[in-house]
């Protein structure tokens, strides 16, 4: 797996730029990061793309589907979207794409705020193992990992990737 953060971010940024080229110039997208790692990547993209509106933040804890098994995360941060998302193009950003359940929860929360014109997904690493029909349009790198291995992004400065093996 490529763990060179700078190279991964560069790939993700250029793919996002290519995606933006398809949007009408006056329709600037809103970048929304998923707490915690997704926000770090979203901030990087925001800076690289020099967008005017600030990034949105989603903490999807209240939308998780494993709540009754895992309980409430005691440190839920409030979600914060800088504008009314209705009719805006949203780029949802997360660090690792695995089962797709986090993205499902994030989309449910987004739609509680309004009806975006479109939602696309940017992730640093797509590690496979999807349990839902969800795909990323912009990807830093794709790796196929066995289910016992997990990629974890640590940060925010410096950003680093590590692979954890669980039993």
């Amino acid at each position: 797996m490529n763990t060179d953060i700078e190279a991964l971010l560069a790939t993700l940024t250029s793919q996002t730029k290519a995606y933006l080229a398809h949007l009408p110039a006056e329709e600037e997208p809103l970048i929304v990061g998923i707490h915690t790692g997704g926000i770090w990547i979203a901030e990087h993209l925001h800076q690289a793309l020099q967008l005017s509106s600030s990034i949105g933040i989603l903490d999807i804890s209240f939308y998780r589907d494993d709540f009754s098994r895992l309980g409430l995360n005691p440190q839920v941060k409030p979600s914060q979207l800088p504008l009314d998302i209705t009719d805006h193009h949203i780029i949802l950003v997360d660090d690792i794409l695995h089962t797709g359940r986090t993205v499902r929860a994030a989309m449910n929360e987004l739609f509680d705020y309004g009806r975006p014109a479109s939602v696309s997904l940017a992730v640093l690493i797509d590690r496979g193992g999807r349990e839902l029909p969800i795909a990323a349009q912009m990807v830093g790198d794709v790796v196929e990992l066995p289910s016992k291995q997990h990629v974890k992004l640590t940060g925010p400065t410096p950003l680093a990737l590590e692979i954890i093996t669980t039993d």
């Binding site: 939308y63 709540f67 509680d112």
Partner: peptide, 16 residues
């Protein structure tokens, strides 16, 4: 605290 929204302080409905 986490049920409070940063802006306005109103509590949003969640599907928990």
């Amino acid at each position: 605290e986490s049920f409070y929204n940063i802006d306005g302080g109103h509590v949003k409905k969640v599907p928990l």
